[in-house]
Amino acid sequence: MAGGASTGGSSQSETFAPARYWLLLPSWVTLTILVLAPVSMMMGYSFLTKEFRGGVIWEFSLSAYDQFFFDRGLFGDDPPVLQWTYISIFWRSIWQAGVATLMSLVIGFPTAYFIATRPEKERAIWVFLVTIPYWVNLLIRTVSMKFLLRDQGPLNDLLVGSGLLSEPLTIVNTNFAVQLGLFYSYLPFMVLPIYAAAERYNFALSEAAADLYATRWTVLRRILLPSVKPGIVAGCILVFVPSLGSFLAPDLLGGAKNFMIGSLIEEQFKGNAGNWPFGAAASMILLTLVMVILLISARQQAKGGK
């Protein structure tokens, strides 16, 4: 951004050059306090030794990462074997977040397209309606969802009562419940960026394609989707990343079997049973994973935009 300003502007940007740094100061301070400092602290803690009642001993150690990836037996003197427990929790998290993202895309894309094709005056109302559930706290929404989905809940009452099912469907404490919870938590983050992209879409392009003998399906695949792709990518990242680290939905809807990284990390900092360096290490691994995903998508975007 600074590069763009200095190459684009001539005398004007030179006049503002000294002021620019001062004006950016609040942003830099905020970012340092809220992003740079905590991440550095977390990284530091991940390389310390754990103290048994929570907290840390200030001594460098790689044991947190070692514990994450390797199993050295009960007394820690067996030869190291790859430890699948945590890796599989990570893998499950990626899978759950991925399915939730896919569900959000399948529901969010038509929703966004629908809003973008309304008359201009109506669109603000539809966008507002999409965000209404998010005025309620996430915890309350997730608990309510559990109440709706449980065996004796309204959904099953309806399904059994109407004769569609003879026995209640078990949804709570399954992977699907977690996916549903994540999907519901983050759906607007899919709808809004796609809507923003679809609103800018020139619908004459769809007409032009139809005029050139493209069927509706081909228009969607060859013209509309490539045009709103930046919005889709942004939406997927905005749903996938928080889903990956989420702990409310897996905790409340998934039960003990359907543990995700977020819960794993949360456990490490709770009460006396925790392991701070291990929690910090798991966070760092999660952070690295997310960064890699973002970098790949940024590179893809840059390639596509050329």
């Binding site: 007409e207 005029d211 003998y213 493209a214 069927t215 490539p226």
Partner: peptide, 27 residues
């Protein structure tokens, strides 16, 4: 529209921005 053997030149051209000129014309 896609079953009518007529083609249109649009007012603001409506060229497909993500395709090359050749692919636009060949579409």
């Amino acid at each position: 529209p896609h079953k009518r053997p007529v083609n249109t030149v649009f007012q603001n051209y409506a060229l497909f921005p993500h395709m090359t000129v050749l692919d636009n014309v060949g579409f």
